[in-house]
Structure formats: structure tokens, C-alpha cells
């Protein structure tokens, strides 16, 4: 019996058609999904980042500043907030829908870049903080412990960047209150 040379072509064509139909059905359905947390209402929120509270833990000032500055950068990158305000900014009083982000250090294990480079396994810098995002009237939106570590490559301060990135990711996923807050 002579093998049908058209068979592979037919199979490929069928597969293409099936994929095209699947995409045609799936993509509009995905686009029509209701946007829960990043809808228009969330765009009205602004956030004020409070300076890091070491809570009695011996954390170098450079680390505290690095966490604070990296948090501001990472929150701006999320594009979820109308304004990202600094601690002490007088303009915050006039912002109607303001969230406040507090960061308290829970654990800190200073590492060593040289130890990491020599042993690979030892010398990790580990940093755990408690992040609390709340409205001005005290309604808590996010309240959890988040960590940022450096295990292999990079300097110790990189832990603060990783930590800030994780906090920003958590905030990005957290559902913000739909209704706007009252004007102060």
C-alpha cells in the first residue's frame, strides 16, 4: 500500500485550525474578564511610604535607607498608585485617597559576599520585615511578613532590593478598597 504523502500536511493544517479556533474563543473571553484590583477605582489611590522601623533590631542605617528608597522605586514601577509620597511629605495631608505603608524589621541576618563567593552555601544575607498597608482610617489592606535574601551573587544591599520588589509584588496583588475614601 502506498503511503499517503498528504497525510502530514493535513495533520498540520488541522492542528493549526484547532489552535486558531481555541485562541479566537479564549482571547476575547480573557479580555472580557472583570478587572478586580487594577480597575479605574484603584487608580485614585496614592500611597505614602513611612521610613523603616528597625524595632530594636541592629540593622545598619544604610539598609534602612536602601529598603525605603527601593520601596519608593518599586511602588512607582507598579503604576498602581496615582502618587507615591515620601514619609513626612506635607502634601500628603491634602491627598484624599491615601494608603500608608509601614515597614517594621522582624529578622536580619547579616551575610558576607566573600563567604558566598568562596563557599556558595554560607554567607547569605537574610532580611524579613512586617509590611502593613492601611488606609488613613486604619483599615488594613495588607498585613504580612515578607523577606528578601541574597544567597549567591551580588552585594549585601541587594537583599533590600529583593525585599522591596517582593513587597511591591504583594501590594500589586492585594485588592484595594473600591470606594474612594472621604476627603480629610
Amino acid at each position: 500500500m502506498k503511503p499517503n504523502k498528504r497525510l502530514p500536511f493535513l495533520r498540520a493544517a488541522t492542528a493549526t485550525v484547532v489552535i486558531a479556533i481555541t485562541l479566537a474563543v479564549w482571547l476575547p473571553a480573557r479580555a472580557a474578564e472583570p478587572k478586580t484590583s487594577t480597575g479605574n477605582s484603584s487608580r485614585q489611590w496614592s500611597v505614602q511610604v513611612i521610613k523603616v522601623d528597625p524595632a530594636g533590631i541592629e540593622l545598619a542605617e544604610a539598609f534602612q535607607v536602601a529598603i525605603y528608597e527601593n520601596l519608593l522605586d518599586e511602588l512607582k514601577k507598579t503604576k498602581r498608585f496615582q502618587q507615591v509620597l515620601r514619609d513626612g511629605n506635607r502634601n500628603a495631608a491634602a491627598v484624599a485617597d491615601l494608603l500608608i505603608l509601614k515597614t517594621t524589621v522582624e529578622k536580619y541576618a547579616p551575610g558576607s559576599e566573600t563567604k558566598r563567593a568562596v563557599t556558595t552555601l554560607a554567607g547569605a544575607t537574610k532580611l524579613t520585615v512586617h509590611s502593613q498597608l492601611c488606609t488613613r482610617d486604619g483599615k488594613v489592606i495588607l498585613d504580612r511578613s515578607i523577606d528578601g535574601n541574597v544567597r549567591f551573587l551580588g552585594g549585601n544591599l541587594r537583599a533590600t532590593h529583593n525585599l522591596a520588589h517582593h513587597i511591591a509584588e504583594a501590594i500589586k496583588k492585594a485588592p484595594l478598597p473600591e470606594g474612594p475614601e472621604t476627603t480629610p
Binding site: 521610613k51 544604610a62 535607607v65 536602601a66 525605603y68 528608597e69 509620597l85 511629605n89
Partner: peptide, 25 residues
């Protein structure tokens, strides 16, 4: 083991015209 070097880090805490806290390292 031998290719590391010690540095000083200077952290400056300062405020902007709006009173916002900044830090630079």
C-alpha cells in the same frame, strides 16, 4: 578569598522642600 576590598559607606538622610524624607548611600 583574596579579591575582596573594604569600603566605607556614607548614608545621608535629608529632606526635600516638601518635607519628604530622602536617603542616599
Amino acid at each position: 578569598l583574596f579579591s575582596h576590598k573594604k569600603y566605607d559607606t556614607v548614608t545621608l538622610d535629608y529632606v526635600d522642600v516638601d518635607g519628604g524624607a530622602h536617603g542616599a548611600i
